[in-house]
Write a protein that binds this DNA or RNA. Structure first.
Length: 871
RNA sequence: GCGGAUGUAGCGAAGUGGUCAAACGUGCUGGCUUCAGGAGCCAGUUGCUUAGUGCAUUCGCAGGUUCGAAUCCUGCCAUCCGCACCA
């Protein structure tokens, strides 16, 4: 088979007939299946992408066959730094670079045979798209959700721009891994902190991987505690301190303030230590923030020469500044006590007093929750009791209150780069900061700019900077920062519902129909970046009255990476296996099949030639199977296997266990190879089941079977689930078990005597009986006849009978049904079971009543027990 | 330190209280077929043993619950990921 030709053939047919175009109206239930859209980097598609998208495509195709109206779109996250860096380096305009890359990516994606609705394609760098980024920005601005402030921010010198907190990893830039510095700059922020509580709370509602949910919770970092106001001695100044351990209040012997805290300057103004403190602050602050945060960093501090009053003890305690206190957590001031390891270290170094106030139940020193002493009226209380009481007491004194603190910071969205959405703000001397009204949007990115690699090209483009105030029409200047590209990806899933609409960002009716996304698929690298921002956007737009749901992605699946030689594929390591290469070598269906088969879709996999060979062989076997002569009738065994195959494959896809589904499909090919009687009907159903996994080849098979239209538009097969008497079913299961053993014994041991078989079976039965009886009692209404048969079965090796065991299992005797049925009825059940077994196994089954065995032992063991013999 | 996961043949990976631990794939060993093969078929791949059956051991380690545990509970150990001087 020429896999490349087949793939091309069917891709063309699908596309010609717009087979995957999605309608916005349908009587079918909707299913929004979405993959994180790719960044068009110009390096093309590698197997990591192919795996990711194949998983989504398999689900989409399956859901379509199951009768869902499936929205399965694709687009490009097209703004971003690499395009701009290419412009500086290779003198290609970012627009050109990006369009080229998208063109290449689009072609590659189509060659993978992914069933996207390409009519809905979008690219975030097009003005028709980013216009709405700007629209949302102005709405956020009006509502106070977007604001500008001067703050110390993360600056990446190599990217020449600021970064959000989420984009700093280990003190390094998430993109270029360059060292991040701290700068004081005026920047635009989105007020994501307003949603901290809701973002945290709603994590519980999500059908997301635990890992991702934990990371989100962790990032939001809620901690409940107390803000205590420490009065500066001999003044009315208050120093607010956040603590989670207010039970150690009476242990506080000094305060420590972050050096860059604005109150520091105020405290020392005019004091004799002023100069010394300023020098210290300058030195510490100049140190890079992320070096300073290193755990093994030597703790350094300086006494300010001032004192505060501990509201617990009313004692005068010294105020220090130190490098280990973080400005951006809590209030930037900590109360230092003897029950914190860091504070103790610091106190030791500078000879500060310490005072213990906690001990454990057994009188030992402890830093954990314990029993208070030396704590005034709270002595003797346990920490858990003391905390709320101290909070109350402090509140009544006006010296503080219960507070909740979050680690989450506001989202810094300004970027000093060209290739992004211009922030739609104008600075007017008269009117101040003015947002651009909707009718003047989009503020287009000027194309005639110079890429020098120094500074923001927009800031150097006067024709862009100089404008008129939208209010008063007097000369004004534009904001030259662009938006973080994560703004683009925070709402693209809404745009897919109406991608060409020029009047609104998204058609409310259509969004109401399609959203939220039923299945989102993507890598774990966006655990706190994109996923948190998108959640925030959804909630913010809801509060602007534009959406009526709280969470954008109901279910999330993290696919694993594709490794080569144990490492993630990357350009720099030179271990990229490209889509093109694989398509040439073995065909895209085989590659897809391999990646879905080799491990669960959530695990990392290694790309190996040997592994792919397995899929090649399976494909060859499939070809043989589909070329076998076909009859009218089908082997009964095949029919039964097919029925259970349908059930299993359906179940596996539903639970994202695509690897297991393929295992079942492989096993069925084996069975077909060994059988002679196969009807066309069986192969048709088989082709349907294969279709989501190997879409092109399955179409080819379908055609070979003489079927019209497409396999991918057919209905998913239904398993034949006949309702049967549960008692009968049970008898059948037991007999099936019997039959298997008898077969084993007879074929392997070549033993003819039934008594020997009985012995063998009886031994094997013991443990099975427990299970069966247990299940029987749980699941069957009237299992008397079978139970009786079971209970009469002696278990000779252990000298036990079922009768002895059953009461142990069931305390409630009443649950054991009465045995009203006699021997004759019992045989009748076996007779019925026999008939069904014959169907099932396609062989002759005879019921034999044991008589006249020569072996006395066996006779004793199996008195008159019906057995089944297979021929 | 906090949080999340994972631990089963040489490797990848099934099995999550009971028919059988190791399906399926790959690798390796032997045999058959072939001019040849990076092709196909058959057998084997924890140990002892058999003409065939069988017996013992085994799911990171140690306990516990159960008639019965890879599976449930407790405690350790190892690996991976995220956060971290978070007060």
């Amino acid at each position: 088979m020429d896999h490349r030709a087949i793939a091309a053939k069917w891709q063309e047919k699908w596309s010609k007939l717009n087979l995957f175009r999605t309608k916005d109206k349908s009587k079918k239930p909707k299913f929004y299946n979405l993959e994180m859209f790719p960044y068009p980097s110009g390096y093309g598609l590698h197997m990591g992408h192919v795996r990711n998208f194949s998983i989504g495509d398999t689900v989409a195709r399956y859901k379509r066959m199951r009768g869902f109206n499936v929205l399965y779109p694709m687009g490009f996250d097209a703004f971003g730094l690499p395009a701009e860096n290419a412009a500086i380096k290779d003198k290609i305009h970012p627009k050109e670079y990006t369009e080229k890359a998208m063109e290449g990516l689009r072609k590659s994606l189509k060659r993978v045979g992914l069933s996207y609705d390409w009519k809905r394609e979008l690219a975030t760098c097009h003005p028709e798209y980013y216009k709405w980024n700007q629209y949302f920005f102005t709405k956020f601005f009006e509502k106070g959700l977007a604001y500008k402030k001067k703050a110390p921010i993360n600056w990446c010198p190599s990217c020449g721009t600021v970064l959000a907190n989420e984009q700093v990893v280990d003190g390094k830039c998430w993109r270029c891994e360059g060292k991040v510095e701290v700068k004081e700059l005026e920047q635009w922020f989105f007020k994501i902190t307003d949603y901290a509580e809701e973002l945290l709370k709603d994590v519980e509602k999500l059908a997301w991987p635990d890992r991702i949910k934990a990371m989100q919770r962790n990032w939001i970092g809620k901690s409940e505690g107390t803000t205590v106001q420490f009065k500066v001695a001999e003044t009315n100044k208050l120093l607010p301190v956040f603590t989670t351990r207010v039970d150690t209040l009476f242990s506080v012997t000094f305060l420590v303030i972050a050096p860059e805290h604005p109150l520091v300057a105020e405290l020392i103004r005019g004091a004799q230590k002023e100069k010394e403190v300023q020098d210290f602050v300058r030195r510490v602050v100049l140190e890079e923030k992320f070096d300073r945060a290193a755990q093994d960093k030597e703790k350094e501090g300086l006494f300010l020469g001032k004192y505060a009053i501990n509201p617990g003890t009313n004692e005068k305690i010294p105020i220090w500044i130190a490098n280990f206190v973080l400005m951006d957590y809590g209030t930037g001031i900590v109360m230092a006590d003897a029950h914190d390891a860091r504070d103790r270290l610091f106190a030791k170094k500078y000879n500060l007093p310490l005072k213990k106030v906690l001990k454990s139940e057994d009188g030992q020193d402890t830093d954990e929750y314990g029993i208070l002493y030396n704590s005034g009226e709270f002595s003797g209380l346990r920490s858990e009791e003391a905390i709320p009481k101290i909070q109350e007491w402090i509140k009544s004194k006006g010296a503080g209150e219960r507070t909740v603190n979050y680690k989450l910071r506001d989202w810094l969205v300004s970027r000093q780069r060209y290739w992004g959405t211009p922030i739609p703000i104008v600075y007017c001397q008269k009117c101040g900061t003015v947002s651009v009204p909707e009718k003047e949007l989009p503020v287009k990115l000027p194309e005639q700019v110079e890429f020098t690699g120094k500074g923001n090209p927009l800031a150097n483009t006067l024709s862009f900077v100089n404008t008129k105030c939208p209010n008063c029409k007097s000369p004004a200047k534009r904001e030259t920062d662009t938006m973080d590209t994560f703004v683009d990806s925070s709402w693209y899933y809404l745009r897919y519902c109406s991608p060409r609409n020029k009047k609104v960002a998204f058609d409310a009716e259509k969004v109401k129909y399609w959203l939220p996304v039923d299945q989102y698929i993507g890598g774990a690298e966006h655990a706190v970046l994109h996923l948190l921002y998108a959640r925030f956007f959804t909630k913010a737009l809801r509060d602007l009255g534009m959406l009526n749901f709280d969470e954008p992605f109901t279910a999330l699946f993290n696919q694993g990476m594709v490794l080569k030689n144990g490492e993630k594929m990357s350009k720099s390591k030179g271990n990229i296996v490209s889509q093109e290469e694989v398509e040439q070598k073995c065909g895209i269906d085989i590659a897809r099949l391999f990646m879905l088969f080799v491990a669960g879709p959530g695990k990392d996999i290694e790309w190996t030639e040997e592994g792919v060979q397995g899929s090649v062989r399976f494909m060859q076997r499939l070809e043989c199977v589909f070329e076998k002569p076909r009859g009218e009738k089908t082997d009964k065994v095949v029919e039964s296997l097919l029925n259970s195959l349908v059930k299993k494959v359906t179940l596996c896809i539903e639970s994202f266990e695509l690897n297991k589904a393929i295992v079942e499909l492989m096993a069925f090919a084996d069975a077909l190879e060994k059988r002679e009687l196969i009807s066309a009907k069986v192969l048709e159903v088989y082709a349907l089941l294969l279709a989501p996994f190997i879409p092109h080849i399955a179409e080819e098979f379908w055609e070979k079977l003489g079927k019209k239209r497409f396999v991918c538009t057919q209905k998913w097969p239904k398993a034949n689930d006949k309702k049967i008497n549960p008692a009968l079913e049970y008898a059948e299961k037991i007999i099936a078990l019997f039959v298997k053993d008898v077969q084993d014994v007879m074929t392997l041991a070549k033993v003819q005597k039934l008594s020997e078989i009985s012995l063998f079976v009886a031994q094997k039965w013991k443990h099975r009986l427990y299970a069966q009886v247990k299940k029987l009692l749980d699941s069957t209404r009237n299992p008397g006849e079978i139970l009786k048969a079971l209970m009469q079965t002696p278990l000779r090796k252990q000298g036990e009978t079922v009768t002895k065991i059953v009461p142990k299992l069931v305390q409630d005797e009443s649950r054991i049904p009465e045995f009203v049925l006699g021997q004759r009825k019992e045989l009748q059940i076996f007779e019925q079971a026999k008939q069904r077994l014959e169907k099932l196994f396609g062989c002759t089954v005879r019921i034999i009543k044991e008589q006249d065995s020569n072996e006395p032992k066996a006779k004793q063991a199996m008195p008159g027990k019906p057995a089944i013999l297979v021929k």
